[in-house]
Write a protein that binds this DNA or RNA. Structure first.
Lengths: 157, 157
DNA sequence: CCGTTGTTGTTGAAGTTTCAATAGTGGAGT
DNA sequence: ACTCCACTATTGAAACTTCAACAACAACGG
């Protein structure tokens, strides 16, 4: 025998892959921090909470089941449960029992929630432009959409 | 006069930009969570802490000033200070006074720190491959490196 | 109908990040 | 030497996330 099974030399990253990965991880650290800062300063909530509101606002009635909302927002049910509690205290979201499944809860954007989003959106979009799209060509954007689309499926369970 | 200054209609995202942005933000939510889970389960620390160790390991003597380490790791000095306290308790990092600047502190990877990294790296690289590079062509990787390189400068202060 | 298993959503404690405040030192100008 | 401002790093409290445990209901098979 030559070597134990799990000790087989791993396939390390190539030089190009390593460069890309260093950039990606740096972006993973810096971009959320930058988005959080703008939203905290200007609107008083973290990006993850803002995201929950926008996902609700994409529904016609501004409401969604908790589990589905968690999936859409890219978060966990635990995180969502805590977050909705905060958003509920601020009056932007309301919980109600699901009529078709007694286990379920439905989160709904309140009137204040809609108003808040309308007031916060322009500043946030401006920041997203400033941080991201101002630096990219149309072709970059298309390619970014394609590449991210390839990565998402395996991350969504 | 027609309208107040800050109320000018913002430049909303185009359809393509919005698609790309939805993907990017979803990635921003899911990828760190996935990296954290693998590292917590297999190595017992979050990705941000692992990243600090790898940045130290890239230095020949495994040591760096706190502020520079924070920049390299894409974090803040506050976060780093807390993180190094944890890493120090686990025996993977040591602090010492900077000889040339009495305000400064130097973080250094210990022998245990090096050993830990050697043991954790293969599993982590495998996960990075599984989550990211297995889904991308060589051209994708090159393009990803270019696009991220365009975004980083404005994020690094 | 009953037991079993899976799903939904919440909770509390522990760990991590954020924010504001702070102490100590460096550096430039007077 | 002194003043002023910038830089370095840390601290504690509040906010957010993670993890394990749990309660309640749904869905399925016997």
């Amino acid at each position: 025998m030559t070597e134990a099974r799990p000790a087989a030399e791993p396939r390390w990253l190539t030089s190009t892959e390593m460069d890309a990965w260093l950039n990606v991880t740096q972006l993973l650290m810096l971009l959320p921090t930058a988005l959080d800062r703008q939203l905290r300063d200007d609107a008083g909530l973290p990006h993850a909470h803002y995201r929950i509101l926008t996902m609700l606002s994409a529904e016609r009635d501004g409401s969604m089941r908790m589990t589905q909302l968690a999936r859409r927002a890219g978060t966990t049910t635990t995180r969502l449960s805590h977050a909705v509690s905060v958003l509920e205290e601020r009056g932007w979201v309301e919980r109600s029992a699901c009529p078709t499944d007694k286990r379920g809860q439905v989160a709904r954007l309140t009137s204040d929630g809609w108003n808040f989003l309308r007031s916060a959106a322009p500043g946030h979009v401006a920041e997203v432009r400033r941080l991201v799209f101002d630096h990219l060509t149309d072709d970059d954007v298309t390619r970014l959409r394609e590449i991210t689309a390839k990565l998402l499926p395996s991350l969504a369970d």
